[in-house]
Design a binder for these strands. Sequence first.
DNA 1: TTTAATTCGGATAATTTTATCCTATTTTTA
DNA 2: TAAAAATAGGATAAAATTATCCGAATTAAA
Lengths: 144, 144
Amino acid sequence: MFSKACEYGIKASIFIALSSYKGVRVSLKGIAKEINSPEAFTAKILQDLVRHDVINSIKGAHGGFEIEKTLISSIKLSHIVNAIDGDSIYSGCGLGLDTCDEDHPCPVHHKFKSVREELKFMLENTNLEELALNIKSGASFLKM
Amino acid sequence: MFSKACEYGIKASIFIALSSYKGVRVSLKGIAKEINSPEAFTAKILQDLVRHDVINSIKGAHGGFEIEKTLISSIKLSHIVNAIDGDSIYSGCGLGLDTCDEDHPCPVHHKFKSVREELKFMLENTNLEELALNIKSGASFLKM
DNA sequence: TTTAATTCGGATAATTTTATCCTATTTTTA
DNA sequence: TAAAAATAGGATAAAATTATCCGAATTAAA
Ligand code: FES
Ligand code: FES
């Protein structure tokens, strides 16, 4: 469904959010360990998220990644997915036609539309706060 | 959402179904032209679909691909997707955990589950007949 | 002011997906 | 029986994605 990059990006963001609530800044190394992802590749993805203002980075000793506490609840999964994979999941044609166009639909257009819109709605209505809290409470997990 | 291979596979199957209703066998060349796909790559995918008994192939002059008329309505999108992309869309974890496990869920598990199940339901309840008829009536299109 | 701990960014490599090419095989028809 | 029209399948190439490596820049602390 999502690219590896996007999967790592989502998991990293959740962990950063969780740590930010605790007031601790996390390093690339710590993130990669926690979400079980390749370190250097994860670095690229985090850079991307920084550029898209999803997370903040602080260079140098005692540096790391964080998210401003007050913003965590307003960051939606859709922001992360958009930053990394773009909007093709929502806007592109499920069968690869040049554009998804109501007036020139592919054979699965009407059937796919509702699924895609449910996905879109879900991504736009799920924020990092709730995901982080579920990790905190032990209701969900970031690896294995 | 789907791989290119899967997109081509779905479109090819629809076109083969449509042709089979008309009683004409279609060649690789004809298919690739109709669905705007690379010929040799499409050939590989069609071979796959033949091996998985989704379509039939007839070698030699006047050969080509076809689907037994009586079977068209019983072939579901899920058969095609499964043959080409496998079942990872349904069964795999959306965030790439080793397994999607209710007892060890990833942070998005519960939110994703319903989307994935709607997708699964849609694929399992959409057959080639209806898709082919929509092409026939001009209600949907296979390229551009 | 030096050192250590970091992120940043460019270059490169490995893997997977997508695509192409060419030959073999099968089948119909002339 | 020979030729032509097809699919089958192996080998290879191109492109995209995933992953690694290393030096540069930045910052805090000793
Ligand atoms: S045209 Fe294919 S999904 Fe809309
Ligand atoms: S555990 Fe991730 S989707 Fe079920």
